[in-house]
Design a binder for these strands. Structure first.
Length: 475
RNA sequence: CGGGGCGUAGCUCAGGUUGGUUAGAGCGCGCGGUUUGGGACCGCGAGGUCGGCGGUUCGAGUCCGCCCGCCCCGACCA
């Protein structure tokens, strides 16, 4: 009984940090607000990266790398941008033992330095669009941090594009939002709501921000990805200009979009249970763990031989064979369940004798079935597909069950206390602020899909409203 | 930065109010043996500047002061 995880119902945030540490995803670093990603957590992150990167490439983007240090003056070129980020900047003022002439900001995001470079690279409409992504670390000096969800330094990707027209930029912004939603639902098994950010919630320097919002296991919201139409704000600040077909000088239109390792925290919170992690097969570092069971040396030889055959049969499946002798099978069952491996194969002497194995699903407690070894190559991938789909469906159901449609302010207050509130909002920042002050809930987004309903009355002030917004307490 | 909690073995903690030789337990770890189909058991063993600095005292893990760090809750945010 060594491993201890606080039950979710008792203390959700303790549960979250317990799971991450016990499953060896990450550990606290000696520097406040920073964390160490351990190999198992990094393997998970690599699978997330691969899933996203593949989609970026498929939509015509290429990867590049821009510097960690940004001249302070760059940030100051875009008024809203510097205002938004100032409070959380880490600034280097010394280098090589001397005070620097100009302080260098450790990038909190790279719009400015990339904008600076784009200004040099863009000359004509023939140079557009520029579609570049970078995988990088960024630093934001946060007051309160939380493993993966908000750390001082974090890993992410940031896409930065330039287009000839507003329409193209808008198309790109929404395309990448779709890419994020596709990844979240199909790879991470996390249902998301695509929507537009309110004025107060949008990115500092953007014309319009969009996000995908997900519901965590405690019914709070988490922004799992953002995509911004930056208009010409950065193009003007950094002189990103091109000659159009009529030989006229035009400012470009830029976008940026990002997903951080925060989405890994979402995977933990959306799917995890009191036993620990539950990982979607597409992202799990190990999709299958094989636990061989034996007593005598004789049995051991036979079981390990069968284990080898099973592993060999499972091509294209990420398989871990846990043949450690210092732990009992029962101990291993618990260990790998805590670490979220989607499928476990038990192989003991009794199985070997009749040419079968026991399969146990992680996502459904106690779900065990017996499968002939000869059918594993077919059944295992099939089962992983089913698990992936079931996990998404369960999360979808959970989100649905905990989303309310209040029409009055009283109902809205009740709704945000227990889940998401999808409510008419007139768009007035004062209504938004009132809700935030009185309930801690913020507007998460105005869903792109309004569900085909017409205009209504603002749930807060009763004035006419054309759209509904998601209100929820958020991470 | 405010409120709360906490720093004693790798981990979880006891001891502290009532200062007194060599600071304990469980888990984990190492060795040996017995075990292995849902977190096995026995024996032996290693492991500590009691967060730091200063003070009181013959004597401080324990009392006093200052500092540091961590966790949880709030204000800012991917």
């Amino acid at each position: 009984m060594a491993k201890k995880i606080t039950p979710r119902s008792k203390d959700y945030s303790r549960w979250y940090t317990d799971v991450i540490q016990q499953a060896e995803l990450a550990d606290y670093a000696p520097v406040k607000g920073c964390m160490v990603v351990r190999p198992y957590g990094y393997a998970l992150w690599e699978n997330i990266k691969d899933g996203l990167d593949r989609r970026f490439k498929a939509t015509g983007h290429v990867n590049a790398y821009f510097p960690l240090f940004i001249p302070m003056s760059f940030l100051q070129k875009e008024a809203e941008h510097v205002e938004g980020f100032s409070p959380e900047l880490a600034v280097v003022t010394y280098g090589g033992g001397k005070e620097l002439e100009e302080p260098l900001v450790v990038r909190p995001t790279s719009e400015t330095i990339i904008g600076h470079m784009y200004a040099q690279w863009v000359r004509s409409y023939r140079d557009l669009p520029i579609l570049i992504n970078q995988w990088a670390n960024v630093v934001r000096w946060e007051m309160r941090t939380r493993l993966f969800l908000r750390t001082t330094e974090f890993l992410w990707q940031e896409g930065h594009t330039v287009h000839a027209t507003y329409e193209e930029a808008q198309e790109e912004t929404l395309r990448m939002l779709d890419v994020y939603a596709d990844f979240a639902e199909n790879d991470a098994a996390i249902p998301v709501i695509k929507g537009r950010k309110s004025e107060s919630e949008k990115f500092a320097g953007a014309d319009t921000s969009y996000s995908i919002e997900a519901m965590m296991g405690d019914k709070r919201a988490l922004q799992a990805g953002t995509s911004h139409n930056l208009g010409q704000n950065f193009a003007r600040a950094f002189e990103i200009k091109y000659l159009d077909q009529n030989n006229e000088l035009q400012y470009g239109w830029t976008t940026s979009w990002g997903v951080s390792w925060r989405i890994l925290g979402a995977v933990v919170m959306v799917h995890g249970d009191d036993q620990g992690l539950v990982l979607p097969p597409k992202l799990a570092p190990y999709q299958v763990v094989i636990v061989p069971i034996w007593r005598s040396e004789d049995e051991k030889a036979q079981v390990l031989e069968a284990t080898g055959r099973v592993k060999a049969a499972l091509t294209d499946v990420r398989v871990k064979v846990d043949d450690r002798e210092e732990y009992s099978p029962g101990w291993k069952f618990n260990e790998w369940e805590m670490r979220g491996v989607p499928l476990r194969i038990e192989i003991g002497p009794r199985d070997v004798a009749v040419g079968q194995v026991v399969l146990a699903r992680r996502d459904i407690a106690g779900d065990k079935s017996v499968v002939p070894i000869s059918e594993l190559a077919r059944r295992v991938p099939q089962m992983l597909t089913v698990i992936q789909a079931d996990m998404l469906e369960r999360a979808r159901q959970f989100q649905k069950e905990n989303t309310y449609q209040p029409t009055t302010y009283e109902e809205l207050k009740e709704a945000v206390a227990k889940g998401f509130a999808l409510a008419y909002w007139c768009g007035d920042p004062e209504c938004e602020a009132k809700v935030k002050d009185e309930t801690k809930a913020t507007t998460r987004c105005i869903p792109l899909d309004q569900g085909g309903v017409g205009p209504g009355r603002c749930a807060i002030c009763g004035k006419e409203a054309t759209e509904r917004a998601i209100f929820a307490r958020a991470y």
